[in-house]
Amino acid sequence: MNAVIADALADPTPRSLWSAAVRKLARDRAGLIGLAVVLAYLVAALGVWLGLWATEWAEITGSKWAPVSAEHWFGTNIIGQDIFQRGIYSTATAFEVGLVVAVLAAALGGVLGALAGFFVGSWIDELILWAMGVLDAMPFYLLVAAVAFALADNPWSMHVAMIATFWTTTSRLVRGEVIKLRGMEFVEAARAIGVPPTVTIFRHILPNTTHILLVQMTLAFVDAIKAEVILSFLGLGVKGGMSWGLMISESTLEFLGGHFNNLIAASCLMFGLVYAFNMFADALQDALDPKQVSA
């Protein structure tokens, strides 16, 4: 007998999927640590957005390659900018990219997946499956780089590129779930009383895929941050602002001189957020897994 079943038997109170998931998540120590770290990063990002700190990220506040000190916690770069301020400012960039891409990719994937699943076997399903097949057949970074390059001067080019490629996984999962749901009694009932298909999809079916969308959003968030760093490193990402990818690319000017502060700061900050988010995403995935929660 596994722990989940034992819990269910021990507590006879009937629980919704959500309350069970929250209870399960609350018992996942690694997931909570991950969440705490992510929240700490979020606070850092909020402070940047509100103009509370990292306001001098673009200014020159020290000498070239100043060492770590009380004034410059991570030292300075080749032109004397404070690496700590730039690292913190980049946190806001990571959250901005991660959130925008995760939400929009999940929304697009959810809607298209639900449509494909509900109209399975029809031309709508065929068209959406074809689009997913085409996008999935292309090497990810090559496609993202091509879209980002084609929209070169647009500050949202990187976001568009990532959303255009990230929605397919969500869409496949939602399609599968909707195919399962469309045969269930509540959908049959809605159909019987004449509820239009769009209302059935968006009011009755799609809310039942929220657990998938939530997990996919957390995964897309992490993927978006990693892709942003790589694209920025290649010169196809952030324009005008600052990001960990740009800091890592800056560090290529500094290796020969034996200076690694930029590289270490950007890598550690990125590692911390990505690792913490992965821990949280794993815990969330476990908590929202209907097979385990409803058992």
Binding site: A58, I78, I79, G235, S249, E250, L253
Partner: peptide, 13 residues
């Protein structure tokens, strides 16, 4: 290029 971008950042500062 990275160097070119950093030269821009310097001028911007």
């Amino acid at each position: 290029g990275v160097k070119q971008r950093m030269m821009f950042e310097q001028l911007r500062a």
